[in-house]
Amino acid sequence: MLVRCAGPKKVAYEFPTAMAPAIQAEYAKQCDKGKILYDINCSRCHTTKAKGKEIIPDFNALQLETYQIRITNETHENNLTETKVTAEELSLILTFLAYKKKNEVLK
């Protein structure tokens, strides 16, 4: 099931089919927030832009460990501190990254 979301570039989400529609809608809302927070906190380093198109990387579940992400590398250690992004926000971002449609080029 794909849900369209708001924002400058539309991102589609992929939820497990077993997930009830009401819960999907709830997650979609969180993903929308997560996308905006991703744009603020992460995209400058992670989104590849070319000719008006954008690619947000597909991280795997292992890489999306909430607590670890702040210190996975030196750049993160300096940029993803508690004073820049809260734990709640990080978890929204990671929800977004986990459910966004894979292999997608945004136009």
Partner: peptide, 10 residues
Amino acid sequence: VSSKNMLDYS
């Protein structure tokens, strides 16, 4: 110096 340890988090 950069950290890889959760203990430096705060």
